[in-house]
Structures are given as structure tokens and as C-alpha cells.
């Protein structure tokens, strides 16, 4: 695999060892090279270069409107990019069609608003994509879905509809739904921001467990506790640019840029 660290110095921090012992093996799984994106006149992503290695847990921080969601969404092409390249496990993201669908299935995504299918039961939410996209038999898909639901602690709710569950339960189902596709990497876009405070931890616990199992994760979150415990690296974005990248403790103790200092003072103050 190409080592892009030489051309893009901002991202070259080696994957650190996590306290739980899981370690990334260095193979780049997600690569963004010189990615630019506009919404009309608004330049939302400015020459983004980022490499996430297999097994790495990356936390993306930054003020609202800095382009964190947009960056996440370009990684499974929910948003198109104007220029640059995005590679998933070495393969460039296809424009459209079957190839794109196949690659998308390798990138799991968890949204701020959960986005469970409102017309399907919890178990059907989890089974749908494995059956339709991966052509897994209904029986196997059902068995695995129940296993995943048990893992995130909502198996007793399998026959209910999403609206009957609490936000925390819905988000855990959304994680199970994404895992059912056996993705190579999971994207989390502020997974706990829409939750009542007492439900935040039940979701973070599931994410910590995933991180501990070696899942490659890109998490947009302002949960400092999670970042410190699970992240191998944090990336700080502002105005569409990656301003800082580093080990979590380093970044939180010694932010280098004014923007980062300002941002950290705001999220720590309350």
C-alpha cells in the first residue's frame, strides 16, 4: 500500500497503542486525498487528506458547520466530491451503479437521527440489508440479527417498531443494523447528540466495545471521555480544513492552534 504520509504531513502520526491492547496493523482502509467539496459558493471541504488504518479509531472534532458531517458522508458517497480521491481498502469509490452499492455496504454508517426504517420492526430493520444486498438466507439473517441485537442489549424489543423504543435503544439498533453487513469500517456522525443525557452512555458503551474488538471507526463526537478512552487519534476540523491531528491526550492537553484552544475551552466549560 502506498504511504501517503510523505505527501500529506498533517496525518502522519503513527497509530498509537490503545489502553485495551488492540492495535491497528497499519494497512490504510480509508484514504482521502486532496478532497474538495463545495455547496454552491460555500467551500465546505478544503484539500482534505486523511488516512485511517485498519483497526484504528479516529475521533473527529470541530465546531458546528466545520464540515465533519460532510466529510463522513463523502466516505460512502452520500455526498459527491468536486475533486480528489477517496479509497476504501485500496479501491477508489465508484461513481455509481452496482460497484458503488457494493462498496457502500462495506462502510457502515450511524446517523445522529438514528434513521431506523419506521415501517419495519427492529428485527426487520437489521435483517433487511443482509437479505436484500448480501443475499443471506432469511434464517441465517434472522439468527445473526438476534445475536447482534443481544450484543447491543435490545433483543427483547425485536418485534417492536422503532417509535416504540427509546432514543438510546434506537441508536443501538442502528449500530446493530450497520454491523449486520460486516462493514470494514464504521462511520458515526454525532451518534449521541440527539439523545437525552441519561442515554448517552449506553450508546458509548457499545461503541467502546466495538473499538475494543478492533473495528475500524471514524467517529464525529464531542464526547471527550470516549475520545480519551477509545481514540487512537483525534482530528480537529474548522472551516472545512483539518487543522490538527494527534493522540487524544496530546490534543486535549496541548492544542496548538487558536481555533482548537478556543473550541476546547467551549466544550469543557459547561
Amino acid at each position: 500500500m502506498t504511504n501517503t504520509a510523505t505527501t500529506t504531513p498533517v496525518q502522519d502520526s503513527p497509530a498509537s497503542t490503545r489502553p485495551d491492547g488492540a492495535e491497528s496493523d497499519g494497512r490504510p482502509l480509508v484514504e482521502l486525498r486532496h478532497v474538495d467539496k463545495h455547496f454552491g459558493d460555500l467551500h465546505v471541504l478544503k484539500d482534505i487528506n486523511l488516512t485511517v488504518s485498519k483497526g484504528e479509531v479516529l475521533v473527529v472534532l470541530g465546531p458546528s458547520g466545520s464540515g465533519k458531517s460532510t466529510m463522513c458522508r463523502t466516505i460512502n458517497r452520500l455526498e459527491t466530491i468536486d475533486s480528489g480521491t477517496i479509497l476504501i481498502d485500496g479501491t477508489p469509490l465508484p461513481q455509481e451503479g452496482r460497484e458503488l452499492t457494493r462498496l457502500r455496504a462495506e462502510v457502515g454508517m450511524v446517523f445522529q437521527q438514528f434513521n431506523l426504517f419506521a415501517n419495519k420492526t427492529i428485527i426487520d430493520n437489521v435483517m433487511l440489508a443482509p437479505v436484500k444486498v448480501r443475499h443471506v438466507s432469511k434464517q441465517d439473517a434472522h439468527d445473526e440479527a438476534m445475536e447482534l441485537l443481544a450484543r447491543v442489549g435490545v433483543d427483547s424489543q425485536a418485534e417492536k417498531y422503532p417509535a416504540q423504543l427509546s432514543g438510546g435503544q434506537q441508536q443501538r439498533v442502528a449500530i446493530a443494523r450497520a454491523l449486520a453487513m460486516h462493514p470494514k469500517v464504521m462511520l458515526f456522525d454525532e451518534p449521541t447528540s440527539a439523545l437525552d443525557p441519561e442515554m448517552v452512555n449506553e450508546v458509548l458503551d457499545v461503541m467502546l466495545e466495538l473499538a475494543g474488538e478492533g473495528m475500524t471507526m471514524i467517529c464525529v463526537t464531542h464526547e471527550m471521555g470516549f475520545a480519551r478512552k477509545a481514540a487512537d487519534r483525534v482530528v480537529f476540523m474548522a472551516d472545512g480544513k483539518i487543522l490538527e491531528t494527534g493522540a487524544p491526550d496530546d490534543f486535549f492537553e496541548h492544542p496548538r492552534t487558536e481555533r482548537a484552544k478556543d473550541f476546547l475551552s467551549k466544550i469543557i466549560d459547561h
Binding site: 452520500l78 457502500r104 434513521n115
Partner: peptide, 19 residues
């Protein structure tokens, strides 16, 4: 978000529409 969740899971247009 419903359509985006479909696309993110790799469902085709037809599958998202019908399911």
C-alpha cells in the same frame, strides 16, 4: 434520512423504494 439509511446500507434504488 430514511433514503440515506437505505443508500448507506447498499440497497439499490428499487429496493429502497419498494421496501
Amino acid at each position: 434520512g430514511q433514503a440515506e439509511a437505505c443508500r448507506a446500507l447498499g440497497l439499490s434504488f428499487w429496493q429502497s423504494a419498494s421496501q
